[in-house]
């Protein structure tokens, strides 16, 4: 995709090596074309967050935190809680990342994650309303890459869902005079739709799932599909400057639908 600067560089000979392996139905780390790297999820090690999860996808590490706070609703949706997703790629994660405000890649990632959570709604935003038109709960999701070894989108998606599944927020009461009183009760966030983000890359004629950094950097383009509840497409994003055929897209959708239950099972079974 030639978007890299100078930190990580894949020599031509390595590019040819990876492509030759793929032509022989093999990958650099001996995985199947539609096999994920080992997924490890760690919870609750950041007690100040209302929900958090750290996901390891091979050597890729992404941490997602959820915070719920009182805020004003949008005028167009006075009886619904708000959702804001932010992602940053800080320099700890890769020699390619520079300090400063989120770049286009981080913004794109945040907007892809956001797309999967909004339609269909991941939580019932009407339940996050306190006083219609005045006060609602805002749901903030912050995603940080800690080590970039390819496929940050899928790792961020898993981390987001894991963080939402474990998130708790403070119950508030409204007094007859309209005052908002925080109670000591903590309510769980109820996840009603379960999106899973699944990314394919196209290298030569091959379509592979969960690329590592080397594969991602030599890929022609990338296709992220969001599968919701097992049989619905909840969003699509093609990125990278290659071209895809319609068959590629259908193949990617088919693979994603097949792999969805496995990833969902990994996330749900990891929650205690």
């Amino acid at each position: 995709m030639s978007e890299f600067k100078y930190g990580v560089f894949i020599p031509k000979i390595k590019q040819k090596f990876i492509l030759n392996l793929l032509n022989n139905k093999k990958r650099v780390d001996n995985r199947d074309f539609i096999e994920y790297r080992k997924i490890k999820i760690k919870y609750g090690h950041i007690p100040n967050a209302d929900g958090c999860a750290e996901v390891q996808l091979g050597n890729t590490i992404v941490i997602a935190g959820v915070k719920l706070d009182l805020t004003n609703p949008y005028p167009s949706e006075p009886d619904r809680g708000t959702l804001i997703v932010n992602a940053e790629f800080p320099p700890v994660a890769s020699p390619d990342f520079e300090p400063g405000p989120p770049d286009e890649n981080a913004i794109e990632l945040a907007r892809i994650i956001d797309r999967g959570l909004r339609k269909p709604e991941v939580v019932d935003f009407k339940k996050l309303c306190i006083v219609p038109g005045k006060k609602v709960y805002g749901l903030w999701i912050d995603i940080y890459a800690l080590n970039h070894d390819g496929n940050l989108i899928d790792a961020a998606g898993i981390a987001t869902m894991a963080a939402l599944l474990t998130a708790k927020y403070t119950k508030v009461d409204v007094s007859p005079t309209g005052e908002i009183i925080r109670t000591n009760e903590r309510l769980p966030l109820e996840v009603i739709n379960f999106p899973v983000y699944i990314t394919h890359v196209k290298i030569g004629e091959h379509l592979i799932i969960d690329p590592n950094l080397e594969e991602e950097m030599i890929a022609d383009c990338k296709l992220t599909t969001i599968i919701s509840n097992g049989n619905l497409i909840g969003g699509i994003q093609k990125s990278g400057s290659g071209a895809l055929s319609i068959e590629d897209i259908n193949q990617a959708l088919e693979n994603s639908l097949k792999i969805y239950p496995r990833i969902k099972e990994i996330i749900t079974s990891s929650v205690k």
């Binding site: 339609k119 049989n231 619905l232 497409i233 699509i236 093609k238 071209a243 055929s245 319609i246 259908n250």
Partner: peptide, 23 residues
Amino acid sequence: SLNKILLLQMDGTLTVEEFNNLM
């Protein structure tokens, strides 16, 4: 002419059948 897709985004929910028809 080349039948190649350069940009594809989708926001919302669709079944696979609806997706194919839209395409």
